[in-house]
Design a protein around this nucleic acid. Sequence first.
DNA 1: GTCTATAACCAGATAGAC
DNA 2: GTCTATCTGGTTATAGAC
Lengths: 184, 184
Amino acid sequence: MARDTRDRILDTALAAFVARGIDGVTVTDLEQGAGLSPGSGSFYRHFRSKDDVLSAVVDREITRALERREQEPAGGALVEHYTWALDNLDRMRSLIALLVRDGTRLPHLDRIQSVLAEGGSRIDASDLSARMARGEIPARDADAVASVVLLAVVGHHLAERFFGGPVGVSRERFAAALASLVET
Amino acid sequence: MARDTRDRILDTALAAFVARGIDGVTVTDLEQGAGLSPGSGSFYRHFRSKDDVLSAVVDREITRALERREQEPAGGALVEHYTWALDNLDRMRSLIALLVRDGTRLPHLDRIQSVLAEGGSRIDASDLSARMARGEIPARDADAVASVVLLAVVGHHLAERFFGGPVGVSRERFAAALASLVET
DNA sequence: GTCTATAACCAGATAGAC
DNA sequence: GTCTATCTGGTTATAGAC
């Protein structure tokens, strides 16, 4: 075995929770996935309960999401901000998948939401207002435009999962179209 | 009792499945919610199994969504199309909630997706291409713009649930901003 | 730290009286 | 059609040997 048992259980748990939801995964599944004898209860030498492993999985994913974080492009073109936001959501996809699957039951729910919210930091009304004031982009209802942009980006990320099909355009074309709409 | 037992079970089941997911709801819960003795098994005089009631709930919601359907505005302003699409998603919110909660396990999944897809019928690339060709709206990457619009609308619907906060702008302002972005 | 074995519990589902 | 009672199977969790 490459990693130690606790890590193998965590890896198995993350994949299983994302794929089948918390209730769809048994402790026996986790033992089997980690190479332990199914039904043996060896799981309990590493975690106190199923809730305990869920909590550990969420903690680890929050940490990983923060580690993978990349600096937001400083000023400049909107398309770079939007591409960055899409990449950011992609880096946090496990966390998003957990949130979508079992939203209300997750531990540290507000922490998760605040980590995810960082992914849209520059997609806010104040940045758009400033650009409108400087005449860089046409003046429109900044709050509403910010909302459209943020939700388009989020929708892009969620679409394949819930609407059962590929989005059909690459993230580059998507970000470019979004920037073009806002800028002209 | 106002309606008969079968209907009360269906009503209870829909609300419970949406709120807690399929696995979060027991047959005993459904009996209690329908005014039957919990744990009695009286449920089984009306449905063969829990899967059976799920299937009946989905069937009924598909029928209801189709009944509530309203005619799409014929030609004209984009803002009316977008408002119509938002209203449409709202009329299908139970179905969407079921899909989000327990996507992969639902019966008639392709039927659900095709019903939902109708809600975005006029938000497609061919309509936008035609408008661009007629010079009604600026020429842009029609596929990418259609994708942005559709996913913004879907994102608007899903946002409150997954990002834990109200969108902040009314559907009217949202639709107006979207139309303004596409039209100018 | 992992195993065998098992306790305790709860969920889905059935039988038969009323 | 609803009830009481019960069966069956699966799930969480623990005990104790190795």
